[in-house]
Design a protein around this nucleic acid. Structure first.
Lengths: 194, 194
DNA sequence: AAATGCATGTAACGCGTTACATGATTTT
DNA sequence: AAAATCATGTAACGCGTTACATGCATTT
């Protein structure tokens, strides 16, 4: 049996402690606010909300809206909170690493250096954009609720993202310098061969 | 259709550029040497090697051994190398984040602080152990082949791991301080209530 | 007129892990 | 005597993505 505690459902349960939300809202949230911590696709969200409801961990009511489709808003139940605390008390399993960019760099000797340079440069751009986006979203969210009991924990998670990204950017700079050195060496060794 | 370029097979193909290896060797390698970059389980490795062989991207020969089971050693073919270069030239897709530890911290208000402290402390221990392990493995591997064309790229990948882990440890220290502050606040507010 | 946003959902499929099976040898 | 190491493999299952379906309202 492949038992894995399905952290997907627990994540949804946790997010519903913040406030009642629809599946759509949850999707927006993982995309906009906590995207650097956790991701869920809608293909996961909707079925899992149903399952949570079947287990009595959340309950839903339909909100009629004019002009747009009805919203099915979920809120966490008392039993849901109890279940969440259980899950939160289990030590998190460490990440299993699968960094495609690093792997491709690891095999870098097989391809022209400019491809690797492009990869790293693209990563830098993406990182800068993400850093902006999440810093913005988090600062807003935290400052909107100054005395909120969640605020300090959100800040810690946000800090992780910032510190990690800074480290990645530092590495990227260092690596780009190295790659350009290799590029020069290769082109000069080509010249001496001719 | 869910087409995902199955980077698992490409990873195996890439590793076979280093030297011919058996499935068992590949498993050892991802566990010991490049474990912070990439992971594969044996349940993936063996079937994927078969598929690669069926496509003519690798070829195998059986090595008889006395006393222990025969080894099926795979080597990459010319077509395999061509295929690998194609894959290496495709921009890597960014990681999809799913950090269980961070997520649990994000919901930290729901549980006693000591649980979170425990989680972070466990992470620090794991990180220190990994840092040791991989630094060791990489230094060995790189220094064993000083003039090897792969060496500079392996170094870059190794540097990534080091820089990232340092950043994580820095964050962990900072976070432990914060958590202890919160712990004190909570216990003092409990006293004033009594 | 076409595209985007709001909103919920299902089906198909691929990927990956875990567990199991086998069996000899060496270490504890 | 039991456990670990070497070595290859298969089967079952869960997780997650992608693609598709629907349909109205607003924006371009």
């Amino acid at each position: 049996m492949a038992r894995r505690t399905s952290s997907s459902m627990q994540a949804l349960l946790g997010l519903l402690t913040i406030e009642p939300m629809s599946g759509y809202d949850l999707g927006l949230m993982v995309r906009a606010s906590i995207g650097h911590i956790w991701h869920e696709s809608y293909g996961q969200i909707y079925p899992n909300l149903k399952k949570l409801a079947a287990q009595g961990l959340v309950e839903s009511k339909t909100e009629k809206q004019t002009g747009r489709p009805d919203r099915r808003v979920y809120s966490i139940t008392k039993r849901g909170r109890e279940q969440l605390v259980l899950w939160l008390s289990v030590p998190p399993q460490p990440e299993i690493p699968r960094n495609e960019m690093l792997l491709k760099l690891f095999f870098g000797a097989q391809v022209p250096t400019r491809i690797l340079v492009g990869n790293v440069e693209r990563m830098v751009e993406e990182h800068r954009a993400l850093l902006e986006k999440f810093r913005h979203a988090e600062v807003e969210e935290i400052d909107r609720n100054p005395q909120y009991p969640d605020a300090p924990f959100w800040k810690m998670a946000a800090r992780f993202g910032q510190i990690e990204m800074q480290a990645h950017l530092k590495w990227a700079e260092e690596t780009l310098r190295e790659l350009r050195k290799i590029e020069k060496q290769r082109s000069s060794s080509k010249r001496t061969k001719e």
